[in-house]
Amino acid sequence: MFAMRNDALDKFDLKLLELMQQDAQRPVAAIAEAVGLSVPACYRRMRRLRASGAIEREVAVVRPKTLGWPLSMIVLVTLEREDTRTMDAMMAQLRAEPEVIEAWNVTGDFDVAVKMIARDMESYDDTVRRLFLVNERVRTFQTLVVIRQLKDGSPIPVAAD
């Protein structure tokens, strides 16, 4: 699916997106009232936003500590080569790793940034050895251990025209 262009979104769509980012479990009737639409009209718009890809997905965000993952790290990786085959293989490996919860191909001094979690430093070390130390695709990597999360996955700002 392709996401809707921003200029295809009217003020009702923008308000729906703003409210749904705050609480996707909010009853449709409450959203409809806040937006100024009837419940059926609101429901149709929400369904269209989902179908178009404007709403990528709706999930429950669970704190890693709740499930026994108290450590978070950002790992910055420089690859041995900057070609499509190397990047595709690295990203496939990262996607398959449960401890890797986000990964990005980035610009600058590093090629890949990885957000990962660990149960303890020993399990982190095991994962890093497997993913980066013995990986022929990796030239260097640097780990930043997260001390405290200052801001979590915040809503995307909704621009009002």
Rank of each mutant, 00 (worst) to 15 (best):
A118E: 02
R85P: 09
V128T: 13
G108S: 06
L67C: 07
R81F: 05
A118K: 02
D109R: 12
A60W: 04
E99C: 09
Q93K: 06
D109W: 01
V77C: 10
Y124F: 14
A34Y: 01
P70L: 02
A113F: 12
T107N: 09
R48S: 04
V134Y: 14
R129F: 05
S52I: 05
W69Y: 14
R95S: 11
D126M: 14
M91L: 14
A89D: 11
E122I: 05
V128F: 03
E56Q: 13
E136T: 11
D88K: 12
L79H: 04
D120N: 15
E82Y: 13
D111H: 10
E97N: 04
V128G: 07
T107E: 10
R129P: 03
P40S: 05
V59D: 10
L131N: 08
A118H: 00
P70G: 08
R47Q: 14
R45D: 12
E99V: 05
M87D: 10
I31S: 12
S52R: 06
A92Q: 06
I117L: 12
T86L: 09
A32F: 00
G36S: 00
S52L: 07
L37E: 03
V77T: 07
S38Q: 08
A51F: 04
R63C: 07
R48H: 01
Q93C: 03
S123V: 11
E122K: 10
P70E: 05
V59Y: 09
M116S: 06
D111N: 13
E80N: 13
Q93I: 00
A118L: 05
A32H: 00
E136Y: 04
V61W: 07
L67H: 03
R44A: 14
V128W: 01
A96Q: 09
A51G: 06
D83T: 01
V62K: 13
V77F: 05
M46Q: 12
M90W: 00
S72M: 11
R57Y: 10
I31Q: 07
G36D: 02
V112P: 09
V106C: 12
R95E: 12
Y124R: 09
R81K: 14
C42L: 01
A103I: 00
N105T: 12
K115V: 15
A41T: 08
G36Q: 04
L71W: 04
V62T: 12
I55T: 04
L133V: 15
V77I: 11
G108C: 02
G68Q: 01
A96M: 02
T78P: 08
P70T: 01
M91Y: 01
L67M: 13
F132L: 07
L131Y: 00
Y124V: 05
V75H: 06
M46W: 02
P98A: 04
L71P: 03
D125I: 03
D126Y: 12
K65Q: 14
